[in-house]
Design a protein around this nucleic acid. Structure first.
Lengths: 139, 139
DNA sequence: CCACTGTTCTATAAGAGATACATCATAGGG
DNA sequence: CCCTATGATGTATCTCTTATAGAACAGTGG
């Protein structure tokens, strides 16, 4: 897990951490069951405060993508087998996606160009499936 | 132009205003050349401060989607004929889209489901074309 | 005892509102 | 016809609240 942060960006650092990890889950770089770095360790690596990392992890926990425990640290949890997303997630996500696609349309991108971009991006992702041992689970 | 705002949302009000207007441009509800309500008027209608509205309008101006003048107020400007988006826009947009699609993948949505959502949304948009008189232009 | 996470507290910056100022259009009087 | 008054609009400055980021401390399990 190697992620980089832009300290001078307008998006909060904890949001950047959350985004990069979400992308790592989608690309398969952080498969379900794999452990993420400890909050303080990652904070040192990024040169930021560990509380900021903690906030990013907590966001992912609220989204059901992470399980945080003392023993194993942060473990990627969400997959097709761990139940559906929390209620209302799909509506919220669709709404945000709508805004994003509207922006592209307003900027002059044609419909097929937009869909092409989406396909290119999704093609780089792998479906989340859990094929390893129960890392972080009680023995 | 009828737009509603969620005052208790976590996303800033000025961002909501910007998002709703972007969507209105994409759906054709606010075609290029049409005028938006005056900042103070819209602020009264929404029950918020006019400065907040002004900030939302200013965002759209920076994105090249709006032209603000005393005479005609805020006028939708961006279309295919008013030049390309500002440099770096497409890279930034693609990056944000990537995060959004990764989120859906991590939540368990299949690739074809994601693309289907995108197609459904884009199908509700109309290409931005300017077919009216030069509203707000010097005579 | 060591390695982790969780909690509480404190500066700094962003969001939202209130107020005051500058600018332009239009109407009315000279 | 020109000048000025008034209203509308956009712009700038200030203040209050909240969120963000950082620092020190406490709790928990191996």
């Amino acid at each position: 897990m190697l992620l980089s942060i832009e300290p001078d960006s307008s998006v909060p650092i904890y949001q950047q951490i959350r985004d990069r990890i979400v992308e790592a889950i989608a690309t398969g770089e952080a498969p379900v069951g794999s452990g993420l770095p400890a909050t303080r360790q990652l904070a040192v690596d990024l040169g930021i405060n560990f509380h900021t990392v903690n906030k990013g992890y907590d966001l992912l926990r609220q989204e059901g993508l992470l399980r945080i425990g003392r023993k194993a640290g942060a473990v990627v949890q969400r997959d097709a087998t761990s139940g559906p997303p929390r209620p209302g997630w799909e509506e919220d996500w669709t709404s945000r996606l709508r805004t994003m696609l509207a922006e592209a349309t307003a900027q002059g991108l044609a419909a097929d160009e937009i869909i092409g971009h989406c396909q290119d991006i999704v093609a780089g992702f792998v479906p989340v499936t859990y094929d390893g041992p129960a890392v972080g689970e009680a023995s």
